[in-house]
């Protein structure tokens, strides 16, 4: 093995590219997939590259944009910052599990009704988050803008905005996303 260079980086193929794979079973949108994956594969790349479920997007691959948001066992996370092999046996819901073009779910329809997107690239992540935050508010999970930590949380504009802030939208559709979420929340209440 070569010694590391001045900046501490190794330049040796044998050290860097061992070929370690692991078996892993993912339950995605109700379908079981038995995979053997390079340990380095993120959940996002497993979905996009191995299962061709490209609804979850790669905007930054570093947890800084939220385009890859999916639900794992009912909890929203960034699929780019978790290893697929760590999700053996987990239930994963992606945008493809929300609805199809022919049969949209209420949040997807609300996004169309309110023009809550433009280029569409952040949209699947926005919809996955939007769905999850309504549950998080119902469950009483506090946020940065929650005024009182000991009472039930109101579904205010501020709560929605804060909770959706992990999903960047460079087209700037935030005002319409807010309306879409309210539309769904009101229909449910």
């Amino acid at each position: 093995m070569h010694p590391p260079d001045q900046l501490g980086r190794h330049r040796d193929a044998s050290a860097a590219c061992g070929d370690d794979h692991s078996p892993c079973t993912l339950h995605v949108n109700g379908t079981r997939h038995d995979l053997t994956l390079d340990n380095r594969t993120t959940l996002l790349d497993a979905l996009r590259e191995h299962l061709a479920l490209t609804g979850a997007k790669k905007g930054c691959d570093h947890g800084q944009c939220g385009a890859c948001t999916v639900a794992v066992n009912g909890t929203r996370i960034n699929a780019c910052l978790t290893l697929a092999v760590m999700h053996d046996g987990d239930e994963i819901t992606t945008i493809e599990g929300h609805g199809t073009p022919e049969s949209l779910d209420a949040m997807q329809q609300a996004f169309i009704d309110n023009d809550a997107f433009q280029c569409g690239y952040c949209t699947p992540g926005q919809i996955c988050s939007a769905t999850a935050i309504l549950e998080e508010i119902r469950a009483g999970l506090p946020s940065h803008v929650t005024e009182n930590l000991s009472t039930a949380i109101d579904l205010t504009d501020a709560e929605i905005r804060e909770r959706m802030s992990g999903n960047l939208c460079r087209c700037g559709a935030y005002a319409n996303i807010l309306k879409a979420i309210h539309q769904v929340a009101e229909a449910h209440s």
Binding site: I77, N78, L81, L149, G166
Partner: peptide, 23 residues
């Protein structure tokens, strides 16, 4: 935590994003 250490709860929710805090 919310009742007895609200400082900790407040600090946590001011960090990162909802997705990241879940993980």
């Amino acid at each position: 935590v919310r009742r007895d250490y609200p400082l900790l709860s407040r600090a946590l929710v001011s960090g990162a994003s909802g997705q990241l805090r879940n993980k």
